[in-house]
């Protein structure tokens, strides 16, 4: 564990708490893409199957995995059941098959071993890289976002961004170790946040509302 990864994981945790806080305090999931949230459930469930295979890493690692699975399911419960009337499917229109199809094919071709667990692991990595697209697409369509929602996205973006220096650090401290699947997908994932961060820094952090130019 290095500082980049620790702060990244804490930022990931923070993003989930920000999202829960937004939903609970406004009693609404307006502006949140349920498609992106469903993809995160799929990401965590397919990646963390190793919880049950005896590949124990650490208490920290297992607790975080359980938290990510549990909290993502809880968010779906809030959106699908508790605050269902505030969920507007008519603006959440990104087609999931455009994401699920290509990532499944990629996972079947590019994996470390052609086994059930390894293919699912690769799938979850590719899926996570693009899982934010329905959310960003929705933002693009509506052209604006509540400030709290932008903080959620910023925390997620920081989490992904910090994994990159973590890999560089690990490359130099762990004898040239590199995980190409995670690194390439991670760079793609981080790149998807660039436009968002531009508006976040130039508007939201200057005290203005998140609004895209018409």
């Amino acid at each position: 564990m290095n500082l980049f990864r620790l702060v990244a994981d804490l930022s990931h945790l923070a993003s989930i708490f920000i999202l829960l806080h937004k939903i609970q305090t406004t009693r609404s999931c307006r502006g949140i893409s349920i498609k992106t949230q469903l993809l995160y459930v799929l990401v965590f469930v397919t990646r963390y199957l190793d919880l049950f295979t005896g590949d124990f890493v650490s208490i920290y690692n297992s607790v975080m995995k359980l938290f990510f699975i549990g909290s993502s399911c809880y968010i779906i419960y809030l959106m699908r059941i508790k605050y269902k009337p505030t969920n507007d499917p008519s603006i959440d229109t990104f087609r999931l098959e455009y994401i699920l199809g290509p990532t499944a094919v990629l996972a079947l071709i590019f994996n470390y071993k052609f086994t059930f667990l390894e293919v699912l692991w690769a799938f979850s990595i590719y899926l996570e890289a693009v899982a934010i697209l329905p959310q960003l697409f929705m933002l693009q369509r509506t052209g604006e976002a509540e400030t709290i929602t932008t903080h959620y996205l910023a925390a997620l973006g920081i989490y992904r961004g910090l994994y990159i220096p973590n890999w560089i650090y690990r490359y130099f401290t762990e004898g040239g170790a590199i995980d190409p699947i995670a690194v390439v997908a991670g760079i793609v994932q981080t790149a998807l946040y660039v436009d968002f961060f531009y508006v976040y820094f130039t508007k939201v952090l200057q005290g203005q509302k998140f609004e895209l130019p018409a």
């Binding site: 564990m1 990864r5 990931h12 190793d50 650490s58 990510f68 470390y112 995670a182």
Partner: peptide, 10 residues
């Protein structure tokens, strides 16, 4: 550099 799956990352 050798490709290795980093198993301790989340």
């Amino acid at each position: 550099a050798e490709p290795v799956r980093v198993k301790d990352e989340l």
